[in-house]
Each structure stands twice: as structure tokens, then as C-alpha cells.
Design a protein around this nucleic acid. Sequence first.
DNA 1: GCCTCAGTACTCGGATAATGTCTGTCCGAGTGGGCATGG
DNA 2: CCATGCCCACTCGGACAGACATTATCCGAGTACTGAGGC
Lengths: 161, 161
Amino acid sequence: MRMGEGVEWALHSCLNLTWIEPGEAMTAARLAAFYQLPPAYLNKQLQALVRAGIVTSTPGPRGGFRLARAPEEITLLDVVTAIEGTGEAFRCDEVLRRGPGGREDVDYRQQCVVAQSMRRAELAWRKELAGRTLAEVKATVEKRHPGTPASTRSWFAGLRT
Amino acid sequence: MRMGEGVEWALHSCLNLTWIEPGEAMTAARLAAFYQLPPAYLNKQLQALVRAGIVTSTPGPRGGFRLARAPEEITLLDVVTAIEGTGEAFRCDEVLRRGPGGREDVDYRQQCVVAQSMRRAELAWRKELAGRTLAEVKATVEKRHPGTPASTRSWFAGLRT
DNA sequence: GCCTCAGTACTCGGATAATGTCTGTCCGAGTGGGCATGG
DNA sequence: CCATGCCCACTCGGACAGACATTATCCGAGTACTGAGGC
């Protein structure tokens, strides 16, 4: 039950995208250089965010990625599911169906007590993630480190790639 | 973020172990036959439960596995961590350290706001799993299907392998 | 008849292959800007 | 000097290998039962 490392990259990159000038776009290469990440692979993760509708992309010169909507409307769950997929962590393969007394017309993913318990736990996890928006994270960071927005912008401005 | 299928097998096997006669042991082959699972591979999962102290094993004829303690003292989290390990799902590789302004003397796993948010969500998940014992699951199953203990025992009794 | 002892079948336990997913990289399609050219 | 059209550099996007974890299997070490043999 290990989460892909792309989740961390995506979250921090989305956070950086909240600090760029409105109307501007940031290329995958620049976002990758910020944390010394493999540019092509980060690009792959950003594409997943595009497919999920979290960021928009524009090709060509002056192109790149930008947030598709306000940070208040982007939850951590959105980003996580965009990278990891919507599937649940606990896979109920319905072993009960293979066991004695197993019926073909029963949806054990819903009926199995074990599956229900695991689902309840995952629901708590999802609820926690869905309750935290990118704007809240951004606000917390800016409260602890007020210089972050300005220093981030200036670092990107002074980048030569 | 996919959980190994061994978790489902381990949970259902532990549940079956709650229904055998006290003092008896159940072999991996029999437990596997119950759900038509690969015997050797289920044995591997059961070994993980042994290392975690959830079940005990005895070799030789009349040997097998039995629960190491009362079902009231076994939580779903115990079983999950026994199979999947204690590591967290979200891997914080501390990308902030690689970024501009990153310090070597800061533990970003604790300080990073993103990591904190993800940790909080996982804590909610763990708390939910830790709050559900094997005894509760067993009781719920027996309430819905009162014949389960007897039919399970008789199935194992009538098994020839 | 009872005890002793060797043989045997059975079980777990860890070491060993096969498979699938995640990680990482590369090249092509499309776009916008920049520059030379002509009016 | 200004408008126009071509060329080029830049960007994303998806197709292509390598590394790692998971899945699956097999064989060896140890144990308790079983039966024969002796007292």
C-alpha cells in the first residue's frame, strides 16, 4: 500500500502554481528544476492533472501549465485521485463467492462485512483529504513563511533554462 | 496506492480461525482450499501474521495456525500492518530540501504542510481500522448469518486434503 | 500385554522464478513568436 | 515606417525501455504420529 511519489510532486507543483502571476503559465521543465526532479516524468504527472481537469496546458512558446480553477475549489483528494486513480486501496476480490455457500447473484463488495469495514476506513481518509483545499495549504504556508510567494516568483523569474 | 490482495485473504482467514474449536489448529492448505486460493502463497501471508504475533504456528502433523490472542484483542489495523508493513502510504521524500531555501537541518517530514495534511488523513484511516476488532466483525457476521460458525466448522471437518 | 525405537508422513519456513506496476526517457505534433521581405 | 508571410524554436503529449515490488512456486528442516520389535 504505497502511494506513488508523483503525488508529492503534483501537490507541491500545484502549490507553486498558486504563486505565479495570474495569466502566466509555468512549463514542466521549470517546475521540475525547482525541486531538481526529472522533467519528463513530472510532465507525465502534470498530464494526469490535465486529464482530471485540475490544471490546463497550452503548448508552444510562452506555454505551460496553470491551475484550471481557484485554489479554493481544488482539494487534496482531487490531486491524489488524479495521480493514483479513483480505485480503492483495498481490493475486494470477493473471495466469499469462491467459498462454500457463495452465491453468484450477491455483490460481495457491498455485502461482505470485511469489505464494509475497510471501505468505512477509506471513506474517513477520503473525507479528510476532501476537506482540505489547496487554498488552505497555501494560506498555512504563507502564514508560517510570509516570504514564500515573493521568493518563489523571483526564483522562477531568475531561472535560465 | 493499491493494497496487496493478501490483506483480504489474511482478514478472511483470521475470521475463519475464530470459528475453529479451541485448541485446534488449521493448516494453510485447508484455509486456502476454503476460498480456492494458492496454498503456498497464503502460507506466505500467514507467516507475516506469525511474525506480527497475530497467529501462532505449529509444524508437523496436527499442526497449523491458530490465533495468538482473543479476537477482541486483534484489530483490523493489526492485520493490515502485518501484511502491508508499518510504512505510511504517502511517501514524503522531502522535496523541499532539494528546492531553493531548503535546509539540511530541518525534518520536512514533520514540518512540510503538505506532509502534515496527508499524515492527518492517514491517521484518520488508521484510527478507523484500529477501532474495529476481529470480534466485532465476527459478531456482525454471526448476527446476519447465524449458521456461519457451524457450517464453517462442518465444512472444514468434511474436507479431505 | 506393554514399552521402546526407528521410520514416515505431514507441517511450516525461507529461498527461488515469473509477472505486473511504477519509474524514467525519448521523439513527434502543434503552436506562437520573430525576422526578413515587400509595399 | 508598417503590414505580411515564412521559418524556427519551444511546449505539451503520447509511445517506448528499465527498475522495482508483488505474485506465485518449490524444496528443505523439524515434529508428532504409526507401526514393528523386544522385554
